[in-house]
Every structure is written in C-alpha cells, then in structure tokens.
C-alpha cells in the first residue's frame, strides 16, 4: 500500500494533519502529524503538502512532486524553512495496523489516495 498525493487537488483544509495527528496521539492535535500542509506562502496562495517518510521528505507542490533525502541539501540551495517543524516528528508508517490510511479517509477532495 502506498500514499498517492495529487497536490493540485489539495485545498489546504488541514484535515489530513488532524487525522494523522490522531494516528499518533489518539487525540486531536495539529503538531504531531507526519504530514503538513505547506502554507507559509499565504500572500502568494502557494500551497501543497509535505510528508515525512523514514529517510525522505516528500514535497508535493503545485508544480509537482519532489523527494528530498533528509539531511542532504543540494550545494548552494538553502533548505526550505517550511519543512523545519516536521523534521522532529514521526515518519509516516502508512497507519500501520489500521485498515485504511486516516489522511486518505478524511481528505475531502481525493488529493490523497491509496495506490499500489
């Protein structure tokens, strides 16, 4: 099972963050999720999703998906400050032990889907 992200369908509602936070805390919390809505460029209306995986950060931006190896920053390229808070969190484990992915269930638009 894999998580498929279509950033164009994301509406930055943050439901995925809350659902994922529940997976880790069994409570409602916006700060423990393995997924963050990338929404620091508010005046530009530029948003997407960041997913923390075991060794990678998956950046799902409107222009496409990029995978960055955690801790490896390309020479001359400044690390994106938007990703900082997620570095301290648990990596996505695809809701290990649950029948479905919570972020997918609570996504209202199909931006998050289960893939093979």
């Amino acid at each position: 099972m894999k998580l498929k992200i279509d950033p164009i369908k994301c509406i930055q509602c943050c439901a995925c963050e809350m659902a994922c936070g529940y997976r880790w805390d069994r409570a409602l919390s916006p700060v423990t999720s393995s997924m963050m809505v990338y929404r620091t460029r508010e005046k530009k209306n530029y948003f997407g999703l960041i997913l923390k995986q075991d060794e990678n950060l998956l950046l799902a931006r409107p222009e496409g998906i990029e995978i960055q190896r955690i801790g490896v920053v390309e020479e001359g390229v400044e690390a994106d400050a938007s990703a900082k808070p997620i570095m301290l969190r648990e990596a996505c484990d695809l809701c290990d032990g649950l029948e479905t992915l919570l972020c997918v269930s609570y996504c209202p638009t199909g931006a998050l889907q289960i893939g093979e």
Binding site: I11, Q12, C13, C14, A15, M18, N45, F47, P62, P108, T109
Partner: peptide, 19 residues
C-alpha cells in the same frame, strides 16, 4: 482566476484567489 482553497477542515473550498 488562480486557485481555490478552504478554511480549516472545510470540505468546500470556498475561498478564491485572484491574481
């Protein structure tokens, strides 16, 4: 017309960005 977005946990993207 640019892109629509939603308020917190609002299933309907009721906000519209104009550039």
């Amino acid at each position: 017309l640019h892109r629509n977005s939603a308020c917190f946990n609002m299933p309907y993207p009721g906000n519209t960005f104009l550039k």
